[in-house]
Structure formats: structure tokens, C-alpha cells
Simulated assay, not measured.
Amino acid sequence: MIEAFEKLSLYFTFPFVRYALIAGTLIALCSSLLGVTLVLRRFSFIGDGLSHVAFGAMAVATVAGFTDKMIIILPVTLLSAILLLCTEKKVKIKGDAAIAMISIASLAFGYLIMNIFPQTSNVSGDVCTTLFGSTAILTLTTTEVIFSAILSVVVVSAFIIFYNKIFAITFDEDFSRTCGVKVTALNFLIASLIAVIIVLAMKLVGSLLISALVIFPALSAMRLAKNFKKVTIISAIISVLTSLLGIIISILFGTPVGATIVAVDVIVFGLSFAFGAIFNLN
């Protein structure tokens, strides 16, 4: 135990470790806020679909030689999120089918493009790092951390300002519309926030594991509380703590950051489920 603390103390002296913890905390907080809304609206899988869209956009940006890949990734992911959330009731391909279609197509085309136009000699390694996060979170620059902080402030601020309206459309979109709530505009806002979260989370857990960051804290919180506000707060606390613990474990034992965070999330969900069942909270 003493050796572990000494090792952590040593690692904390390195800027890249502090950057990883800061970015990880911010991303986890943002993911948890909208996670509850997405789960309740039966859009739990949207994070996975959009993450694959982001992967495809990243592949195109890489092949095109963009230094700042966010120029491509963020707008493409944003557009896809808007199409999925804002037009869900106006198209013939509904909900999970649309998400699955976009997810599979983006993942396949992204991988195909990276193989046809390889930028390095280790395409498989590049793909693995993008999909599973690997140690990408430990290579963040100061600029990327500042960018993450700015976007995180935007997401949290928007959620707090529009909390009541987000709560309303989460449970009854049609009734909210009759009460004068601008549902389309709010769906646009939620879609935009989700897109930002997906782009931020890519380096933390990778494209394939982003859904876990959105879903598990929300599901764990739902085992412990029934009030929407309490569930949201508990979800945020769980998400931040599990992300920090996952990053620390990854640093100590050299495990992949993304997979470690998800493993911790799964364990916490199991404990929350058991706790809720024992004390009849479910």
C-alpha cells in the first residue's frame, strides 16, 4: 500500500498524469449529466453509434492530412446527432435501427479508409488505440486539456440552465410541446451536447467504450434513487469517482485506461444493484 502511494506521488509530479485526471474528471461529469436523459428516452445506444461516426470522421481527417482533426470530427458527429434525435419521428427508419445502421456503416468505412490509405506502418495499432482508448488519455497536450475544459463548462452550463425543460421532454415530449416548450430546439441542444461529449470521450475510453461512460453511471444511480434530480447528482458522483479510480488503477498497473474505467463502472453497477435490492430501493 505504501509503495502504491509512493508510486502515485511520483506519477503526480508529471504533467501528463495531472492532465489525464483533469480531462477524465471533466469528461466523466459531462457524460453522466446527459446519461440519465438518454437512458430514460430509450437512446442508451446513441453514444455507441455517434462514437463510430466520430471514428469514421477521424479516419477521413487523418487521411486528408488535417493537423487539427476536430475540424472534421466535431461537425460530422454533431450533424449525425441532430439527425438521430431531431428527426427520429419524421423518418421511416426509427430509433435503434437508425443508430445501428449509422454505427456499422461509419465503423466499416472508417476502418476501410485507414487500410486503403495508411498513414503509418502500424494501422492495427492506430485503430486499436482509437477504438479502445489505450494510453491516448496520457498523451494530452495543454491545449487539448484547455479545449476539454471549455467544452465541459459549456455542457454543464447548458444542462443547468435548461434543466427544467430537459426534465420535461425526458418524460413527456408531446405534453411539453403543448405547454409551449420548444421541443425541437431542445432536442437540437441535447444532440449538440451529446456530440461534444462523444468527441471529448474518444481519448478517454475509445470509440467502442463510450456508451459505457454514458450508461453505467446512470443505471447505477437509478438503483439507488428514484427522483430525477437525485439520480442525476448520484450519477455524476459515480461517474467522476469511477473515472478517477480507473485512471489511477491504469497508471499503477499499466492496464488500458478505457477498459479499466469501464471495468470499474461495471463493478460499481453490480454493487449498486445489490445494495438497491437489499434495501428495497429498486
Rank of each mutant, 00 (worst) to 15 (best):
L244N: 14
V76Y: 11
S239Y: 13
V17Y: 09
T25S: 14
K94S: 13
V123W: 00
V231D: 01
M101P: 07
F147S: 05
F167Q: 12
S134H: 06
R41C: 10
A149K: 06
T120A: 04
A259V: 12
L224W: 04
I27D: 04
I71K: 13
A97D: 15
A263Y: 02
I169C: 10
Y163E: 14
F43W: 06
S211P: 06
T184G: 11
F12G: 13
K89W: 08
L138C: 06
P118T: 09
I215G: 00
K203R: 11
C86M: 09
I146W: 05
L79D: 04
F43T: 05
V264F: 06
D126A: 08
I2T: 15
E173S: 04
K94P: 02
T255Y: 12
C86W: 01
S44V: 02
V264I: 11
L38E: 01
K226V: 12
N280S: 11
A64V: 13
I82W: 04
L208N: 02
F16G: 09
V257Q: 09
T260C: 01
A20E: 12
T120M: 08
V196S: 08
A100I: 10
A185E: 05
M1H: 09
V257L: 03
K226N: 08
N227P: 02
G125Y: 13
N227G: 00
G180S: 06
A201N: 12
V183H: 03
E3F: 09
E173L: 15
I93L: 15
V231M: 09
L241I: 00
A20S: 15
T37A: 09
L224V: 06
T255F: 13
S44T: 15
Y11W: 12
I233S: 08
A201Y: 10
S207V: 06
L281N: 04
S243A: 14
H52N: 03
F5D: 12
F14R: 14
C30D: 05
L224T: 01
A263P: 02
R41S: 11
V266N: 09
S250D: 02
L10Q: 15
I169E: 06
S239W: 03
F12K: 10
I71E: 12
S44P: 01
Q119C: 00
F188E: 04
A81S: 00
Y11K: 11
D48C: 06
S51R: 03
S9G: 12
A98R: 06
A100L: 06
V145G: 07
T62K: 01
H52K: 07
L83Y: 11
L208S: 05
G47C: 12
L10V: 10
S207G: 09
V36N: 03
G24K: 09
V257R: 03
A225E: 14
K182H: 10
G246Q: 02
E88A: 13
L245W: 01
A61H: 05
V231S: 02
I261W: 02
G258N: 00
L252V: 00
T255S: 07
L83I: 15
L34E: 14
H52G: 00
V127Y: 01
I116H: 01
I169F: 12
V153F: 15
F5Y: 11
V240M: 10
G47S: 07
R42V: 05
L21C: 15
I99H: 00
F16P: 11
S272G: 03
T77V: 11
D68Q: 04
L107Q: 04
G270E: 10
G35T: 03
I22R: 03
A136N: 14
I22K: 15
R42M: 14
L189S: 01
I249A: 04
A236Q: 05
